[in-house]
């Protein structure tokens, strides 16, 4: 459905490389995630695929149309929600939706069943201006606007950034339903914990792809044994574990530390910690998460 073939894009006359030699494919009906921090090149990829930017090198195809030659055809079959998209603040919910429906040559009624689930949540406020909505509501409205013409491919650039946990959960539930409707979705996010909601993901950093696979596959590829270390004094524990000479890497993850060790050094940690006064420390092997993998790939 989407194919990128050695795509490179630079800015400032080649001084700054936004994305470098990116290739991947997205299958029809797939929910594909681009995961990475700001500056990873996610937005640049979206803009190339939505025909807003011309790549310097490489070729990209969306829905069998070339992004350079057939840009007009792509524009009528994709839905796009840019990262900084904030709708028309001075128009009401209904006016915004009506407007985008018409721009895409359709009406709200025509594809109502597709947006119904989402729109019903904001419909009670339909006469309120978009500028007066909360982040979660704006995001839902923006999704409705991007969906109203029943696109074959949906591009969502950081739709959950700056939105609270509840709205984020709801949003991913909505994407799951859209996927069931057969819409191909390419979505980006800086939140690693959202990666598991995708069929496949590409981990990105500084314009390059670190790894592409299913979330499970990425986790399975984690080459080392990972342990969770806990104690009641997380902060001092962090210092002690880092000071321990058998520690390879140590990062705080919520209430525990995720630690990898130099070969065979894991057993000696607890005695070491006890000697430093961390008497209630515990250690257990755990399955890595996407964030562990990302950190590992960053080091490599």
């Amino acid at each position: 459905m989407i194919t990128l073939d050695h795509i490179t894009k630079t800015y400032n006359k080649g001084q700054f490389t936004a994305v470098k030699d990116i290739s991947f494919e997205v299958q029809p009906g797939e929910l594909f995630g681009l995961i990475g921090p700001d500056g990873a090149g996610k937005t640049t990829l979206f803009r190339i695929l939505t025909t807003l930017l011309l790549p310097d090198q490489g070729r990209a195809v969306v829905n069998n149309f070339d992004v350079v030659k057939d840009y007009a055809k792509i524009r009528s079959c994709v839905g796009y929600m840019p990262g900084r998209f904030s709708l028309y603040q001075d128009l009401t919910i209904e006016e915004n939706l009506n407007f985008f429906a018409t721009v895409f040559g359709t009406t709200i009624e025509e594809n109502y069943d597709l947006v119904k689930d989402i729109y019903q949540q904001i419909e009670p406020f339909k006469d309120r201006r978009a500028g007066k909505l909360s982040g979660g509501m704006k995001q839902k409205l923006a999704l409705c606007c991007a969906l109203i013409h029943k696109p074959a491919v949906l591009f969502l650039d950081e739709p959950t950034t700056g939105v609270d946990v509840v709205s984020r959960k709801e949003f991913w539930d909505m994407l799951k339903r859209l996927k069931q409707e057969g819409i191909t979705i390419l979505v980006s996010t800086p939140y690693m914990d959202e990666a598991n909601r995708c069929d496949r993901i590409a981990l990105m950093q500084k314009g390059s792809i670190l790894s592409i696979d299913t979330p499970d596959g990425i986790v399975k590829a984690f080459p080392e044994e990972l342990y969770a270390v806990r104690s009641s004094q997380t902060h001092s524990l962090l210092r002690e574990v880092r000071a321990y000479d058998g520690t390879d890497s140590c990062f705080a993850f919520g209430d525990s530390l995720h630690v990898t060790f130099k070969t065979g050094k894991s057993q000696d940690l607890l005695p070491y910690l006890k000697s430093k006064g961390q008497t209630d420390a515990t250690i257990q092997p755990i399955e890595p998460g996407i964030e562990d993998c990302f950190i590992h790939l960053l080091k490599g």
Binding site: I122, F125, R128, K132, L133, S134, G135, G136, M137, D164, V165, V166, K169, D193, G254, D255
Partner: peptide, 19 residues
């Protein structure tokens, strides 16, 4: 399990939808 669940439990029934 984690703070995310705590947050979800508390905030999911929030009435207020506008800033």
């Amino acid at each position: 399990h984690n703070m995310e669940d705590v947050f979800y439990e508390l905030a999911r029934n929030a009435k207020r939808k506008a800033d």
